[in-house]
Design a protein around this nucleic acid. Sequence first.
DNA 1: TATGAATGAGCGTTCATTCAT
DNA 2: TATGAATGAACGCTCATTCAT
Lengths: 198, 198, 198, 198
Amino acid sequence: MPKVTEEHRLARRAQIVAAARTCVLQDGFHKATMADVIRESGLSAGAVYGYFKSKEEIVAAIAEDALSTVDEVFQKILATEQPLTPLMALETALAHVVEVSERPGGDVTRVAVQAWAEALRNPAIMSTASGKYTQLRDRFEDVARRAQADGTIDADVDPRHVAQVLFGLIPGFVLQRLIIGDVTRATYSAGLRALFRP
Amino acid sequence: MPKVTEEHRLARRAQIVAAARTCVLQDGFHKATMADVIRESGLSAGAVYGYFKSKEEIVAAIAEDALSTVDEVFQKILATEQPLTPLMALETALAHVVEVSERPGGDVTRVAVQAWAEALRNPAIMSTASGKYTQLRDRFEDVARRAQADGTIDADVDPRHVAQVLFGLIPGFVLQRLIIGDVTRATYSAGLRALFRP
Amino acid sequence: MPKVTEEHRLARRAQIVAAARTCVLQDGFHKATMADVIRESGLSAGAVYGYFKSKEEIVAAIAEDALSTVDEVFQKILATEQPLTPLMALETALAHVVEVSERPGGDVTRVAVQAWAEALRNPAIMSTASGKYTQLRDRFEDVARRAQADGTIDADVDPRHVAQVLFGLIPGFVLQRLIIGDVTRATYSAGLRALFRP
Amino acid sequence: MPKVTEEHRLARRAQIVAAARTCVLQDGFHKATMADVIRESGLSAGAVYGYFKSKEEIVAAIAEDALSTVDEVFQKILATEQPLTPLMALETALAHVVEVSERPGGDVTRVAVQAWAEALRNPAIMSTASGKYTQLRDRFEDVARRAQADGTIDADVDPRHVAQVLFGLIPGFVLQRLIIGDVTRATYSAGLRALFRP
DNA sequence: TATGAATGAGCGTTCATTCAT
DNA sequence: TATGAATGAACGCTCATTCAT
């Protein structure tokens, strides 16, 4: 019973979060109603509240889910055998953004933008966002340090500042894809290569 | 009478938008209630509805207000007599971000982040955001073209792609200031100078 | 505006409390729903919540209302010119119980019984009940003291203990009227006269 | 098997009623939830519903349980060999009230007060209360008749009216103990002796 | 024109009860 | 027989908006 039940429990939570994400993608965190989520999930109100004790908890789960996709970039950067240049690290991240935005279940980057807004008034989400983004940025800092060791980047610069810029290029990529719509990995990379030191 | 009345009307609208922005900065677009806005504005419900026909219209006004701060960057870039390098244009923009975030009346960059999220489900705000951001990015495109003319940037690259990157650095600056909190003009500039071609 | 509005406000509150009392008399404090109260009051949900911020507040108002009928007994006992004997004081109280139970708007003694039960889990109502009942019992204590001065009651006894018994006869009168139903002022008085010292 | 099963059944019912009483003492009949009762009983929802077909049935069982404590007073009055005076009968009853209020499992007098309120809207409980209280009052009527035979009480008075008063003193004792809190057997008896004919 | 009391649809949530296992 | 996840009607309450004054 324990293992099956635990799996069952997690499956149900995932089912609810998926349904809720669908609603949130249409209507945003606040306009999406529990009635919508309940209908979309195919469960009853009581069942949903058996897995999450409030709408806020579901919102937090969706936000965490979306923000956690950066963990995968993090892993990819760590997993690479040969040392990454800043440009390569960034391209890895951009590729990941595109990939997760096309996964079935809805464009996670849209959820992430909502999570940014929500973080400004929801300390739990702020804390998640802050933690995840700091963690990823720290990997860019490693990359910057490596580049300094190589001599590709001036050794006098604080690698954290370099990381701020590398990491800082990602939200602009996400946002332009969603709001202007004409940005792709290829165009952004071309721009990067034109501006960055070789 | 028409002129006085028209001025009066605009003043009232500004008063209401200012009150609403205060509420929205605390609670977000959706958790801020009309009752909050009405109380904060010092007017009556009827009066507020005399100037805006719905909450949505107030939200749109706040969002447009916040998104319109980019017009000022736009103007600054245009107004500069000597041609701007990409780095200089960007530093102008970053300086502007910092300046508007510290204006009395509340940090406009926070409203902008909310507007990004709202744009994803509100076509009017999406349209405003898209228009304003395209306009600003077009200025960065001018800057890129100039740099290509100078030979600072490879002439073979599409200047729009360069502009995507230049513009794309701004949301990441805004977001890191709000969510991580350790980014300043100076640190970001240092990172930029380390990465960009001289 | 102020005076009219204040009267209006009190009238509305009274209207809501009256409607709520009707519902509570049928269904009890907890089975009476806000929807019932709203329907009965003829107002809208929003209007009701403009006068009371929660159901609990309405319940407290009804309970306080019912418990406050003892203030009138209190006044009657004080107002009597000639000194009251314990028996006379008690008969005044019993007459009052009968009178308030027959007032239009519903039998207040039924509400009082509900208030007793509610007091056991609601500190606000407990506090009201405790205060009102202590106040009334204190009047019986005055009566007892007077009787001791007259020599009708043994001077050695604590007048508070006498008051406990005099006051204590009232709940039994109320309860038997409601639960057994065969008790009247006349029958209870006859019993009292048979048992009490002349 | 039938006997064991029947015992088992009664034991389970008692276990559930005990758990429910604990909940009801904290929260009242209506605020106590079945989930509370189920948790407190240590059984499953299905099990509880195997022994009682509804919450109402559990409520009725608790109320009956509490109201049935008067049967014991009844028995004590009957069991006394020498004839009881009204005062003695009453003191027996008061002693019993105190005793049952201190039994482990929770103060039954609190449940009784709740049962009074519930009786007003629940015919089954009204019927139980009415029956039990009439039965006990009938014993006081016997006592009154005896006192009339003795000449202690005027023979012209209807003994039922005397019983109304004797019985009527008990709710006031219970209520003052719970709501004002300064009444004891000793103080109430002192008051009674001061007021009653010797 | 300005007011703010009133509206009522719709919100998030609860909980007595059932039934597949 | 026992379980406890699931049900869904109904709850208390909110809030964008209106309109009689």
